[in-house]
Nucleic acid binder design. Structure first.
Length: 564
RNA sequence: GCUUCCAUAGCUUAACGGAUAAAGUACUGGUCUUCGGAACCAGUGAUGGGGGUUCGAUUCCUCCUGGGAGCACCA
């Protein structure tokens, strides 16, 4: 990496000037007039050296070793030192990318180079809504990014298949006396359990007798009572098939599905074991973790009826996740922020159980909600936006707008929706409005894909033209070309940053920037009708832009099309 | 009450402590007899308030105001 080279040289220079104890960082200046990389180290040294920062910067410049990858070094205003990468170096990188060599700097979370991203976690008997879609988009992107920077990544998914919400649904079914054998298509089945869940929820609130019955059903599910198991197993299976369809539609899959129903027994055992060890304690008939001594909340692990809570079951889950795939560096839990307290507590308890095994090995990535502008999404009020429904709506919008074929529209629709989530930071609450939120103009997936398609179209017309970087080292680049070249060179570092910061949106923003710069360049400069060497170089830029867009979108879990 | 997250242009969002705070959208006006107009250009418009740290603060600390979320037997 060129960046590392510059840093290394900078350190050497500082050592030579007898300066230590200062943080050296390289930045990518937002304004391209300030070079490819920039350092403010001279400014940071003002106090230590009691000198004019411009003089310090000049010293650094003077002592910086002559290398072939630096074209020039500038010292600017308060005391920035700006580095300009040589064209030869940049064009080499361009050639690599054209040959499909994406070389990313490595980033690991531990010596095993192996981690699990746990995401999706829908609950059976419920709809897969746009919140799940944001989750799956984020999780899948993180998986691909971590793979790119040199990790083995396991996709984990913890699905809730027990609990009161399911009892409500099953009560609804029993109460409706529907013959479920008559439901033939998966679509019908899913719609049916959705309705039954609403009915059960309503009954739970309005009818005390129904409420007691639901509580009984809930217990029967935990006890694996055969009387309810047939219905539970059947309807659960519907949900699982429905989820699989969703995963497939959104280009994801899982190495391992964990189920809450499987964690019940072991969760109980572990909780009881650690009660003896004094990690948990009895309180008002329940078994709890007293978080006060650690500045955490107190939370229940076994309730007063003797059932493990979500917390209790989490202990069993952690045990399984950390043993199923050998030693992991980290498990990243992609879960909404309301669970922050829950994770702080369970992480602490796990650490107390086995410090070596669990301490600092888990991270709660608190990605935010998708909220409706009109109000909160809640199944009780029946204003849940189903992921499939939304994508279908966007698909219609796309077909109406462009008259493209079904297959293309599907890819563009999925791309639009996923991208509209991913371009935001994970911590941003998305205020969703069906008419405005899924953009197909501006900063949107179709814009990026359009740019990709445009690149491909130009390349198709450039027949009989070998794209090769050799022999054009001395070309003088205009500003438009330089902007693109520079961005393309930055791509691997951006991907690494996205991993370090757990922020797929860095890649999204980068791609948008690249597409904008390319379109601007395209508008102002002729490609196919320019002079030979220029033409060759511009075709290289075009090809590399296309490849980077495609690769970047791949890392975001988004497909491209060749024509649209 | 305690904990935690958030506050940037009319709206939706960007910005590793750095240089002129960046886009989309909306609005106004323009470009092209096209290598794909789902394009490009120009204009209008923003860091909630007060202190502090720093050569430098949207970013870090503190207080205030206003929102979201969590705080024992739900998941």
């Amino acid at each position: 990496m060129i960046k590392d080279e510059i840093l290394k040289n900078l350190q050497t220079v500082l050592k030579k000037l007898n300066i230590s104890d200062v943080e050296v960082a390289l930045e990518k200046p937002a304004n391209s007039d300030f070079g490819d990389y920039s350092t403010s180290v001279a400014l940071k040294l003002i106090k230590q050296l009691k000198k004019n920062p411009l003089l310090i910067a000049e010293e650094i410049k003077k002592n910086f070793p002559k290398t072939d990858f630096i074209q020039k070094i500038d010292v600017i205003k308060p005391g920035f030192v700006n580095f300009w990468i040589s064209n030869v170096q940049s064009i080499n990188r361009l050639t690599e990318i054209i040959e499909n060599k994406f070389i990313y700097p490595e980033y690991h979370l531990g010596k095993n180079k192996k981690l699990m991203v746990e995401f999706a976690h829908p609950n059976t008997h419920k709809l897969f809504h746009i919140g799940h879609l944001r989750n799956i988009s984020t999780g899948e992107a993180l998986v691909r990014i971590f793979e790119a920077v040199g990790n083995k990544v396991i996709r984990g998914n913890y699905e809730g298949d027990v609990g009161i919400h399911i009892a409500k649904c099953l009560f609804g079914i029993k109460d409706s006396k529907t013959d479920i054998k008559k439901l033939k298509t998966l679509q019908k089945k899913i719609e049916f359990i959705g309705k039954m869940y609403s009915a059960g929820t309503k009954a739970y609130e309005d009818d005390e007798k129904a409420k007691q019955e639901i509580i009984k059903i809930n217990r029967m599910i935990y006890d694996k009572n055969p009387e309810i198991m047939t219905l539970w197993t059947e309807t659960r299976q519907w949900s699982l098939e429905y989820f699989e369809e969703n995963y497939k539609r959104f280009y994801s899959h899982f190495d391992k599905l964990y189920f809450e129903s499987e964690m019940h027994q072991r969760g109980l055992e572990i909780s009881k074991e650690i009660l003896k060890k004094g990690i948990l304690e009895k309180s008002q008939g329940a078994i709890v973790f007293n978080g006060k001594k650690y500045g955490l909340d107190t939370r229940v692990f076994i309730n007063s009826l003797g059932f493990p809570t979500y917390e209790g079951k989490e202990l069993a889950l952690a045990e399984k996740e950390f043993s199923d795939f050998g030693e992991l560096d980290k498990i990243i839990h992609t879960v909404t922020p309301e669970q922050t307290s829950f994770f702080k507590v369970t992480f602490k308890v796990e650490e107390l159980i086995d410090e070596k095994k669990y301490k600092n090995k888990q991270y709660h990535l608190a990605y935010e909600w998708v909220k409706l502008k009109a109000g909160k999404m809640s199944s009780r009020e029946g204003n849940i936006i189903e992921a499939n429904w939304l994508v279908d709506e966007v698909k219609k919008k796309i077909i109406e707008k462009s008259k493209c074929d079904e297959e293309t529209a599907e890819i563009l629709a999925v791309a639009s929706v996923k991208y509209s989530f991913l371009k935001n930071g994970t911590q941003t609450i998305i205020h969703f409005d069906i008419d405005e939120s899924i953009a197909v103009d501006g900063n949107s997936a179709p814009y990026l894909i359009y740019t990709y398609v445009r690149c491909q179209s130009v390349l198709r017309k450039a027949i009989n033209y070998l794209v090769d970087g050799r022999g054009i080292d001395n070309i003088i680049l205009n500003k438009d070309e330089l902007n693109i070249l520079r961005l393309i060179n930055q791509f691997p570092e951006i991907v690494q940053q996205a991993g370090i910061q757990l922020s797929p949106n860095l890649i999204a923003n980068y791609l948008y920037d690249l597409a904008q710069k390319y379109n601007y360049f395209y508008q102002k400069n002729k490609i196919l009708e320019s002079e030979k060497t220029t033409k060759q170089f511009r075709l290289m830029l075009t090809q590399a832009t296309g490849k980077v867009i495609k690769e970047g979108l791949y890392l975001l879990g988004i497909k491209t099309v060749e024509k649209m």
